[in-house]
Write a protein that binds this DNA or RNA. Structure first.
Length: 638
RNA sequence: GCUGGCGUAGCUCAGUCGGCAGAGCGCGGGAUUUGUAAUCCCGUGGGCGCGGGUUCGAGUCCCGCCGCCAGCUCCA
């Protein structure tokens, strides 16, 4: 009999090949493990050892164990469904784990599972957990497996079995009278799982293909302890509380009107002020760095989009054509062809490169109605878009400067945690080896030069060039992709872009697309959620609200207001016949960063009583001192 | 687009078995002149998403449409 050598806790054990891991743990005196990691592979106690190596035991409460336990919960849910609705009515798809828990795709004949059914299913699951069935692994031959699942009427499982490569073991796991095709791993018995909650149901196509039947996907989240589970549920509450669609309405930033159209944003006055500040900032920063501002139209002739290749490759994302004077026009989904037309408006010399054209360009893209989501996924949006056209020699400097610009911009909005991704040449691509080499090097050097970690997505670039994407982490720990810096070897060819070099010959320039925030709309959604609606003072539509206590203070309040406004501070007054407390409450709910209360005392001494949303009541301050105080905060982008 | 859920006042929601459409907030008017998160009183506001059908009678039941929300990538 063949033997394998397994090392556990520094000791080596030689056992027959195929011995279950649990047996080895017994020899090693390990009692309460629920599984193990064999050379990086997560296995359970019943997994037969087919190779040797180092094994680390996995216990309840551990991270690796979480994966095992969640997987078992998916099975327990499937068993519960079979018990509730009858085994022959329930057909199972796949039931994997997710980052937070698990799901199972199922089909229940003659019944649509809704969220109302979830408590009942949970209750049945708890019952199965209490019964503490041992979970047993069995390996079957292909024929046995096909026979078994045919008998059970599990047509989806049969699909899966057919896809398992020859020679790979086919295993099933049994608990009570429930049996499921499964690679494992699983906990030793149904009683050894953690806390869970079923959260939602949705439709999901079998194998993710729309030509396949749609199953019901039931989601659950699971953690080892009640405490962790409660914390995660609280996190979801927080996500809901911070939903930018709700904040956008409460703060009167934007609205979406059915009569205007789905995915089309109407910016309300308060949102518009914020947007103006944001856009002014962007334009200033671009001018500082030698970009030139341009404006381009919203539509262009079909010929333009033919040349650019958009009609060929991007048509399904474009709004359909409109006919004008026997000529077809398309609403722009991108700004590049226009920026290229600007570049080509005259002969360009190498002396004026790099040429950096910047536009807050509003584009329209057709998105499926089902994917639209507040500001985060829309059909019309404004990009902070630029195209940089340069010589090959300038590529390194241009990229370094651009990446630096992107990161410093993100930092200005309060994002300091980034993840940078470098996507390289895919299998099918255009452009020369030299172009790819030079560009990829420039991107890599730029990231390394700034001392950042990055991940390489090998072959993940577009067919027309490599790129860097920057993702940020928001206050809730979620990652969002914002900046992108992307080479394009395609458009300069298609549009025959050239510059005259020092040699008085025509050369092909390099072109780079880049966006820092991506889209103003989407970025605003992310920002609202990141700050839970409490924007930094420099971005707040109203920075200060002046609250007079009684009518006799209105005159002084107006003086204060005027002074603030003359200093360029966005200030408002609350002159309603309301009690001070009510006015403060309203201002707090509107998340206005600073409240100035003025009454008899302030009027006499020429001061204001400062209450900051962040820091609470700060007491009285001379008016001029307050002006300095808040200007300092605005300057520092607090 | 597909599947499921939901559409009642500007907002958040209640409306039982099919039997006179409600509450709070908001908004308007009045009283109150107030020191750090809701003063009181009165009033206003609804084609119950749209269109059909069943019924003596439909917010409620049935059918069709529209809109919104969630999911549709993570391979037993």
């Amino acid at each position: 009999m063949e033997k394998v050598k397994v090392r556990v806790k520094g000791k080596e054990y030689e056992v027959e090949k195929g011995t279950p891991l649990g047996r080895v743990f017994e020899l090693a005196g390990i009692r309460d493990a629920i599984g193990g990691v064999l050379e990086g592979e997560l296995i359970d106690l019943q997994t037969p050892l087919r190779r040797g190596g180092e094994v680390k035991p996995v216990y309840r409460g551990s991270r690796e164990g979480l994966e095992i336990m969640r997987h078992s919960l998916a099975h327990i849910m499937a068993q519960a469904l079979k018990e509730l609705y009858g085994p022959s009515r329930v057909r199972l798809g796949v039931g994997p784990t997710t980052e937070e828990g698990f799901y199972y795709d199922v089909e229940v004949e003659g019944k649509t599972i809704t969220e109302e059914d979830l408590p009942k299913i949970e209750e049945k699951m708890r019952e199965i957990i209490r019964r503490d069935y041992p979970i047993l692994r069995r390996e079957l031959s292909r024929e046995e497996a096909l026979e078994l699942f045919k008998r059970l009427g599990e047509r989806y499982k049969l699909d899966i079995i057919r896809d398992i490569p020859e020679g790979e073991a086919i295993s099933v796991y049994e608990q009570g009278d429930f049996v499921d095709l499964c690679r494992g791993p699983h906990v030793p018995s149904t009683g050894k799982v953690g806390s869970f909650k079923l959260t939602s149901v949705s439709g999901a196509y079998w194998r993710g293909r729309s030509d396949q039947p749609q199953l019901t996907r039931i989601y659950g989240i699971a953690y080892w302890s009640d405490k962790e589970l409660r914390e995660r549920l609280k996190f979801y509450e927080e996500v809901k509380r911070r939903d930018h669609r709700r904040l956008g309405r409460e703060l009167e930033f934007f609205t979406i009107d059915d009569n205007v159209g789905a995915g089309l944003i109407l910016w309300l006055p308060r949102g518009a002020i914020y947007r103006k500040v944001l856009e002014d900032y962007l334009r200033e920063e671009h001018l500082k760095r030698g970009y030139q501002l341009v404006y381009t139209p919203h539509v262009g002739k079909s010929k333009l989009w033919e040349t650019s290749g958009h009609l060929e490759c991007y048509r399904e994302n474009m709004f359909p054509a409109m006919k004008i004077d026997d000529e077809e026009y398309y609403v722009k989904p991108m700004n590049c062809p226009f920026h290229i037309a600007i570049y080509k408006s005259r002969v360009r010399s190498y002396k004026e490169l790099p040429l950096k054209l910047f536009e807050l360009g509003t584009v329209y893209r057709y998105e499926l109605s089902g994917v639209l989501h507040g500001l985060l996924r829309v059909r019309g949006f404004t990009q902070d878009d630029a195209h940089i056209i340069c010589t090959p020699e300038q590529v390194d400097d241009v990229i370094r400067e651009t990446l630096e610009f992107a990161l410093s911009t993100l930092k200005d909005f309060g994002f300091d945690e980034f993840k940078i991704y470098l996507s390289t040449r895919p299998e099918y691509s255009i452009g020369s080896d030299e172009q790819w080499e030079r560009s990829q090097n420039a991107l890599r050097k730029a990231i390394e030069g700034l001392g950042y970690e990055y991940e390489v997505d090998e072959g993940g670039g577009a067919f027309y060039g490599p790129k860097i994407d920057v993702k940020i982490r928001d206050a809730l720990g979620r990652m969002w992709q914002l900046s992108t810096i992307q080479f394009d070897f395609n458009l300069p060819e298609r549009f025959d872009m050239t510059y005259v070099g020092a040699d008085n010959k025509r050369h092909r320039p390099y072109m780079i697309h880049r966006a820092l925030l991506g889209s103003i709309e989407r970025f605003t959604g992310i920002l609202l959620e990141h700050y839970a609606g409490l924007l930094p003072i420099w971005l707040s539509p109203t920075q200060v609200i002046v609250i007079p206590i009684a009518d006799r203070h209105h005159g002084y309040a107006r003086e204060v207001l005027e002074r603030l406004r003359s200093e360029g501070i966005r200030a408002e007054g609350d002159f309603r016949e309301e009690r001070m407390n009510a006015k403060i409450r309203d201002a707090e709910l509107k998340k206005i960063p600073v409240i100035l209360v003025v009454g008899d005392r302030e009027m006499q001494s020429g001061t204001v009583s400062v209450r900051s949303k962040k820091e609470g009541n700060l007491g009285s301050m001379e008016l001029s001192r307050f002006v300095e105080w808040i200007k300092e905060k605005i300057r520092n982008k607090e």
